[in-house]
């Protein structure tokens, strides 16, 4: 049975990322400015690259691997073929107007990205320095200040690069910026402890309480995730004013979008976290990422899954509100099907 003690996972967290370099550099995907969905106010969200989970429904598949990856954006391609000639690994070929990448050969060296005049070869994964990223994030300080917003570290899993995350959060706090960390909870308690002193809000994913189901959906069981949540509760109980906690539960058709899961999560919150959770967000399944999978040559189980209907979303919200958890903290968000006009 694979657990978070698995050596492979450990390696991934602690060795194969730039975070090793004293927490001064990190691999991120990009920053999203005027982000209005990852915590209070106007925020900039930093998407870290690399995640210990592999949720079947993941809508950021490019954030799973902590390695750089390259994708071809068909819509921008002008068909000049420069990338084909540039690639030193011979991993690109043209097939019926499409550029096909042999990912077993691709080293993500970025030569095709640099050479492509149209920006059609796109690098996923950017190595950033701490101060470089900080000054980028501070450009929107006025928006954070006026809105009660700030910075959210998300991903991927920011706590896979805990030293960098902690350094960045500390520097942000030094500059008077409010901070949030969006985590899947699968990390060492030490990593959590590193960032908590500089974190105003934790957005904590609680996808499923049943360990077997959790493994089935995400590739990992949830023992550590639940333990960390209890750890977090105790931490917050000791320092109630320091950090706020939001719980986020994705509602995935055929997986978590059902009465049982919502009830289990709700009861867990009621029994273990009552009074410590400021908000419980039910996030409806989203299919906008379908093309990302295609571009990364990944299969997606949910490619043809329809969105929840409004009624389903509403019903799940009502179920959540009847679990004994404070109904005022519950909100449902996300896209639903276009109803028949």
């Amino acid at each position: 049975m694979k657990t978070d003690q698995d050596p492979a996972l450990k390696t991934n967290v602690e060795e194969s990322t730039p975070d090793n370099i004293g927490g001064e550099r990190a691999i991120i995907l990009h920053t999203q400015r005027l982000s209005t969905e990852d915590g209070p106010g106007i925020r900039t969200t930093v998407f870290f690259k690399g995640c210990p989970l592999h949720c079947a429904w993941c809508h950021n598949p490019e954030s799973i691997s902590s390695q750089r990856q390259i994708q071809w954006m068909e819509v921008h391609c002008i068909g000049c073929g420069i990338c084909l000639k540039t690639c030193p690994w011979g991993c690109l070929e043209s097939k019926e107007g499409a550029i096909v990448r042999d990912r077993s050969l691709c080293q993500a060296c970025g030569k095709c990205v640099a050479a492509c005049p149209a920006g059609a070869q796109e690098m996923l994964g950017r190595i950033v320095g701490l101060e470089e990223l900080l000054s980028e994030l501070l450009k929107d300080k006025v928006y954070y200040d006026k809105s009660g917003g700030g910075i959210t570290l998300s991903g991927g899993e920011p706590l896979m690069q805990p030293k960098f995350a902690a350094n960045l959060l500390r520097r942000l706090k030094e500059n008077g910026v409010s901070t949030a960390v969006d985590t899947c909870g699968l990390c060492s308690a030490a990593s959590l402890e590193m960032v908590l002193p500089y974190t105003d809000l934790i957005l904590y994913d609680l996808k499923e309480i049943d360990p077997e189901k959790h493994r089935q959906y995400t590739g990992q069981d949830n023992r550590r995730i639940l333990e960390n949540l209890i750890f977090l509760r105790d931490y917050l109980t000791a320092r109630p004013a320091a950090t706020a906690l939001w719980i986020r539960t994705p509602l995935i058709p055929g997986a978590t979008a059902n009465r049982e899961t919502v009830e289990r999560v709700g009861k867990f919150i009621r029994d273990n976290l009552e009074g410590r959770v400021q908000r419980w967000e039910l996030c409806a399944f989203n299919n906008l990422c379908r093309d990302k999978y295609r571009r990364l040559d990944m299969e997606w189980k949910y490619a043809s899954t329809p969105l929840l209907s409004r009624e389903e979303l509403h019903e799940l919200e009502q179920i959540a509100k009847q679990t004994g958890t404070n109904p005022d903290i519950i909100s449902a968000t996300g896209a639903t099907q276009v109803e028949n006009a």
């Binding site: 999203q32 969905e37 819509v75 996030c283 989203n286 906008l288 968000t333 996300g334």
Partner: peptide, 14 residues
Amino acid sequence: VRVTGYNAYFTAIG
């Protein structure tokens, strides 16, 4: 295009 919790560049989706 912003859908709750998710942003995508419109031109980059199918």
